[in-house]
Amino acid sequence: MQDVLKKKSMEKRILAPRDSRETIGNINVPNPRMVCRNVNVYYDDKQAIRNVSIDIGSNEVLAMIGPSGCGKSTFLRCLNRMNDTIESCRVNGQIFFDGSNIYDPSVDVVPLRAQIGMVFQKPNPFPKSIYENVSWAPIIHGLVETKADADEIVETSLHKAGLWDEVKDRLGQPGTGLSGGQQQRLCIARAIAVSPEVILMDEPCSALDPIATAKIEDLIDELREQYTIVIVTHSMQQASRVSQRTAFFHLGDLIEVGSTGTVFTKPSHQLTEDYITGRYG
């Protein structure tokens, strides 16, 4: 039965209207930082996310995996309302952050996005100096009053992102002149400069070489002590290396959630097993 279903879905990538599939595994965690319930996302009239519910725990790294087009990036962008910038995109359901629904009309996205930072697939430093890349957000949020404050934030953020030693002598040079891996760490420094609580990472290593990837993965591990991290990745190895919990998405449904060890060694759902063993994807 599962095979038939899989075959059908592989043949026809366009989603027919249908009910969502039930999620296997425990979506709850004891100390959730974010709570998502019955989230549906539509692009115009096409549904990209079906009825997804999941908790994101404090100080954990949650990895979201799944084949291309499964909606994991779309779901990630719901978590800090980045989807608002896409005109055709519509979200319903509830996502609670610190007890309040971020899709409530009374919520202002500007402070929300400062609390839930984001790192993108392709490094996108501003075409400004390294210093300004990091100091810009704290300045516009009024977190700094003096030059000394800004200096301190820049230094600590770059330290946390593991970039300080490489760039401390050339803070005035453009951020776009760094190597790809350095740019991505600069973007992480930019995200943590406003002291967020959650950091969303959308395939942060897909444009990087293995050495730069290893550095970012080490960094993610360190950042977990202070932040909650949600990472979308195409690399199963990366998910198993950096995350504590893993969520498997397939065609807009959240198929399976569980601790990373369980999902990768004893997957309960046939689709999950097929995916992580490399039978498709």
């Binding site: 392709k122 501003f126 400004k128 957000a137």
Partner: peptide, 25 residues
Amino acid sequence: PQSLRDGAYSVGATRSETVKHVLIP
């Protein structure tokens, strides 16, 4: 590029801050 706008919005910049500090330069 849209990625610059995304970068600015993702650190909580408003539209006008994004326009003034990122897009116009």
